[in-house]
Amino acid sequence: MMPQLVTARWRRRDGRRRRLFLPVVPIVLLLSPLLVFTVIGGIVACLMYGLPPLRTLAGVGRLFGALPGARFEFEQGRTAVFVSVR
């Protein structure tokens, strides 16, 4: 399943907290023109290195689809970072 929401939270040294919610689908739609160029670039790179473009694209898609559930949390002193993919 495609990731729906990426949540990022961090706390700076001065103790201020920030939160960022990134809805993946709208962002992908917004960046879709750029994605077309990225995909074309990827296909050209695949052909240059003799890789099967469709299978490589499917592999990247599978990697992207496996992201939900991933979570990263780091805390050191007064600095903290939290990233979660749902």
Binding site: P68, A70, R71, F74, E75
Partner: peptide, 8 residues
């Protein structure tokens, strides 16, 4: 230091 990582 605390690190907590969950990888599917």
């Amino acid at each position: 230091t605390k690190v907590n990582i969950r990888v599917p």
